[in-house]
């Protein structure tokens, strides 16, 4: 798994490549702590290059979304396909996380 974090003016993009599973989830959590923390923060998770996610990955996303929501911010997902899309949808995570095609659309907030 590879993680890249880009902190912009009013949002952060976290790009995850590879697999987010039981083994890699602790690293994901650790690295995401480096995200700039601001009021009403927007975090865009770019999963276009993510091949695989398990419940350990879902737990990280849930914890992140709960924390961000408390400060008035939000977590958005984009670029999901294949198994990642299946897992997100079957778990009902699409009911509380907005999902976009790509980062540009997530930034503009357009579905």
């Amino acid at each position: 798994m590879k993680i890249n974090i880009a902190n912009e003016q009013d949002y952060s993009v976290i790009t995850v490549t590879g697999r987010l599973d039981t083994v890699t989830a602790p690293d994901f959590e650790k690295e995401c702590a480096a995200c700039k923390e601001t009021e009403a923060q927007r975090i865009i998770l770019d999963f276009a290059a993510l091949d695989y996610i398990s419940s350990a990955g879902l737990r990280c996303i849930l914890a992140m979304a709960k924390k961000i929501k408390k400060t008035g911010g939000s977590v958005m997902l984009c670029g999901i396909s294949g198994l990642v899309e299946e897992v997100i949808k079957v778990s009902g995570f699409d009911s509380f996380l907005p999902i976009f095609e790509n980062v540009e659309q997530a930034v503009r907030g357009e579905a």
């Binding site: 419940s55 879902l58 849930l62 914890a63 979304a65 929501k69 778990s91 009902g92 009911s95 509380f96």
Partner: peptide
Amino acid sequence: PDTQVGLEEREVGGLGIFL
């Protein structure tokens, strides 16, 4: 886990076996 509830009520456990 109840997969229909919103973010606030959503609990962290039980997802693995569910999947």
